[in-house]
Deep mutational scan, measured.
Amino acid sequence: MATGGRRGAAAAPLLVAVAALLLGAAGHLYPGEVCPGMDIRNNLTRLHELENCSVIEGHLQILLMFKTRPEDFRDLSFPKLIMITDYLLLFRVYGLESLKDLFPNLTVIRGSRLFFNYALVIFEMVHLKELGLYNLMNITRGSVRIEKNNELCYLATIDWSRILDSVEDNYIVLNKDDNEECGDICPGTAKGKTNCPATVINGQFVERCWTHSHCQKVCPTICKSHGCTAEGLCCHSECLGNCSQPDDPTKCVACRNFYLDGRCVETCPPPYYHFQDWRCVNFSFCQDLHHKCKNSRRQGCHQYVIHNNKCIPECPSGYTMNSSNLLCTPCLGPCPKVCHLLEGEKTIDSVTSAQELRGCTVINGSLIINIRGGNNLAAELEANLGLIEEISGYLKIRRSYALVSLSFFRKLRLIRGETLEIGNYSFYALDNQNLRQLWDWSKHNLTITQGKLFFHYNPKLCLSEIHKMEEVSGTKGRQERNDIALKTNGDQASCENELLKFSYIRTSFDKI
């Protein structure tokens, strides 16, 4: 039985969820670079991206490699990797027998973001014989899940209580170790020597080791999670996991709180800001991140802002960003909400898709409305799209047979046209069989910064309504002859009103 693990408890099935942008060198404390989270699957090609990484700022997932063999891993080693800020997950990587050479110096898994409450997941690794993470000293947050690894031993010899604050939620089941077939031998045991430290858990006094050649490092209890030197002297209180010299914040392997210019500090002093819960960055760093993602459509890219001495992905609820200094300031009234469309555009074809934009005031991208039916549609669209004030790209209304009016965009005031449909149009209306009105132009103002209007096959939309939009939106004169079809717009509506004058002759039985 794995020490510190839980057996036999019912657990939810383990679901495996399925960018080499360097964020800056980590400095003297770390020998390499800070790398983003990685999802490495199918083959070993991307694994080489770990070569210079000291910190993975995010998670590391290595999974679904069915053609790899043990010899493929023999020359692979990433000794610079010290810390993973989120979680480490391995799933069905064939041929991998140990992690001792792959990650010989991995010391800390912070667990800032977890995989279903777990910071370390080893699942269905069919050839893994031992973990071998002999320098792993601290899992700051989260638990361990090690399950269905039929060859995995050296679990009962690990004292997880020396690595985690609590072992109650560890789930370590259905491994070879369960069948008591392992016969784990710690260093020196074969020669009758006791080389590794022994600890007591559940009444068992057991030597602690990761492999037959690597003991588990056990520091004096007084050192807590700070770690200790090879001689057993406690590291500085700002260290986490390990250090090369005692009581020196510049000799830590990793930091308990924050890293700044080669030393570990309790908090980031001005003019620095907390970033990702582990390091200090200056304003320029946060500003660069903001600008890199301002026009990016890459998933996970955030326009970072500053709030409460932190550089964070977005302002919290009730705050909006001051564009001059990136500071989050309290909103006066309802907060603006910028919604970034991942692929640059979004099609609204149902109430469900409209709900995804609920509360958005600025759309960074283009909207395509293609709704053919739905219950209580006008009210639903207004509830979900009615706060949109600005669209950076274009607005396209296409084959939306259920629409009679666009009044559900009740606050839309600006279409920038930074991206144009077919390279020309910022407003595009095609084949809307029941569209009769755009907006009530006596109450609604709309500016279209650039781009043209396109109207074709809107049989109940009168040309007068379209011409009014040209005047109000500032697009009059931009359109070419064929942009607004004269014969297919309003051709099934009563669009022309003329005053009919009647004269009559009164007659009676005795007068003409």
Rank of each mutant, 00 (worst) to 15 (best):
L131T: 11
F283T: 07
L50A: 09
H290C: 14
G227D: 02
L99N: 00
C255S: 00
S323I: 10
H28G: 01
L60T: 01
D177V: 02
L99T: 08
P79E: 12
T199E: 05
R141N: 15
I109D: 00
S143V: 06
K100S: 10
D165G: 12
V144W: 00
D178V: 10
K191C: 02
T211S: 04
T320S: 08
H291M: 12
T85W: 04
K224Q: 10
E57M: 00
R141K: 05
H274S: 13
D159T: 10
T221E: 13
K176S: 06
D75N: 15
C252P: 00
V281M: 04
T157A: 09
Y118W: 14
L164A: 12
G95I: 15
N135F: 01
N257A: 10
P36I: 12
F103M: 12
V265W: 08
K191T: 08
I306H: 07
K100G: 05
R69V: 12
R298C: 13
I306N: 01
N170H: 03
R279K: 07
C264K: 00
K80L: 11
R69W: 09
L60V: 04
G188E: 05
N308V: 11
R256S: 10
E51K: 01
V265E: 13
P104K: 01
S54R: 07
I172E: 03
P246A: 02
F73R: 02
T250H: 09
C239Q: 01
G318P: 02
P336W: 13
N202Q: 14
D177T: 02
Y273L: 07
E147Q: 08
E266K: 00
K251R: 13
K100R: 07
R162H: 08
V121R: 01
P70T: 06
G32R: 09
G227Q: 05
L99K: 00
R113F: 08
G142P: 00
S296H: 10
D277N: 13
S225W: 14
D247F: 08
V55I: 12
N175A: 13
P220T: 10
E180F: 04
L155A: 07
F91C: 15
K224R: 04
G227R: 02
R69D: 01
G142M: 01
T267S: 10
E124S: 05
N195Y: 07
G300M: 04
T250Q: 07
I172S: 06
C235F: 01
Q61Y: 01
E49K: 15
C53W: 00
L260F: 10
D277C: 03
N149H: 01
T140Y: 09
I109P: 00
C235T: 00
G58K: 00
K292S: 13
D184H: 05
E207Y: 04
M321H: 14
G241I: 02
D247R: 13
F205W: 14
T229V: 09
Q61T: 07
L174I: 10
L332A: 15
Y94D: 07
T229G: 07
E97I: 13
P187R: 04
N295H: 13
Y259C: 15
I40N: 02
L174H: 11
L326F: 06
C239T: 00
L88C: 00
N170E: 09
G203A: 15
I163W: 01
H290L: 09
E180M: 10
P104L: 01
M125Q: 04
S112D: 15
P313Q: 15
F116M: 08
L233F: 06
F205D: 15
N52V: 11
C196G: 02
L44T: 11
P220H: 09
V265H: 14
W210P: 02
F283G: 09
R208E: 09
H48P: 13
Y134M: 11
K67S: 06
E147M: 02
L240N: 12
E71N: 15
E147S: 04
G111L: 01
P270D: 08
K176M: 10
L260S: 12
P79A: 11
F66L: 12
T45M: 11
I172H: 05
V305E: 04
L136K: 01
P270Y: 15
E151I: 02
I139R: 01
C153K: 02
L102I: 07
G203P: 05
K224V: 11
C153V: 03
R256Y: 10
R162D: 07
I139E: 00
D177I: 02
S143Y: 07
C219A: 04
C255F: 00
Y154A: 07
L88Q: 01
P270V: 06
R110F: 04
C264I: 00
H59Y: 12
I306Q: 01
V218E: 13
V200I: 13
Q276L: 06
H307E: 13
P36W: 14
G300T: 10
C239K: 00
D288Q: 14
Y171V: 08
K80F: 09
C239N: 00
K193L: 14
S54G: 00
N175G: 05
P316W: 03
S323G: 14
R113T: 11
L29H: 06
T267F: 06
D184M: 15
P220V: 05
V200M: 05
I82H: 06
P249M: 02
R297T: 10
P271N: 08
C182L: 04
Y319C: 08
D86N: 05
R263P: 02
H274T: 15
N43H: 05
I158A: 05
T250M: 07
F78S: 02
G227T: 02
D165C: 09
